[in-house]
Nucleic acid binder design. Structure first.
Lengths: 115, 115
DNA sequence: TCTATATTCAACCAATCGGTTGACGATTTC
DNA sequence: GAAATCGTCAACCGATTGGTTGAATATAGA
């Protein structure tokens, strides 16, 4: 009924949810740990996590009494591809972005020093 | 007050607004012409257009009694770059990603040459 | 078994959203 | 000047959103 892009973009529109995604970029986390840095209730964070899950941006797996949250970048990639179709991004130089990523993803010993 | 990403993603979350953006990809259009293919009132489309404008996704310029709508890909670019960071997994160094963004989003005359 | 921890559920709330309608101001055209 | 066109404004509506609280459900550990 509703385009997956609806739910993905709607999920990304909230700063709390984007912050959660950034946290999960570094490591998988339990719900309680996700909630810790925020000033809202655990229930509120739990709702944010189900929204992210339904959007396909994360997956949740229960092990014991702990539910682990894991980034799932596929849905974001779909949205990203949609946005690319507005491709006149010339000024922002996706080329140099790719070079940046290549650098970042290279094995550590091939990386040029940045400091 | 609110992160520009909030308004950009929120604007993109509505299918009508995404359709409008796709239409504007082909050519600039007057408000009435934007509204024509949709089954909702002109006033509704007008609201959608102000949301897109506030998000920075389009610009509107009035000439005579006609208001022309034009795609403005800069805001989308910022959102797109934000999303790119999730496409590739773990090893992305967020610190240097931020440095990259500062560089990219800086005024052109302050940018170091990349070629 | 009793208790503490992890998470969700259910009910509620105010604010926002996406739509409508009708009136209105500005501009063009006859 | 009168009439038609372009677009927004204002008020209203029902549905959704983002948050709260308190109770409920699992699971783990003593």
């Amino acid at each position: 009924m509703s385009d997956p892009l609806d739910t993905v973009f709607a999920a990304l529109a909230d700063p709390t949810r984007r912050a959660i995604l950034s946290m999960l970029l570094e490591d998988d986390m339990a719900v309680t740990d996700v909630a810790e840095p925020f000033q809202m209730s655990l229930a509120a964070i739990s709702k944010h996590l189900t929204i992210l899950t339904r959007a396909g941006l994360i997956t949740q797996e229960k092990r014991g009494r702990v539910k682990w949250c894991k980034l799932d970048p596929d849905a974001m990639k779909a949205a990203s591809v949609w946005m690319q179709s507005f491709g006149q991004f010339e000024p922002v130089n996706l080329d140099s972005f790719e070079r940046f990523l290549e650098q970042e993803l290279a094995p550590p010993d091939t990386k040029p020093l940045t400091e």
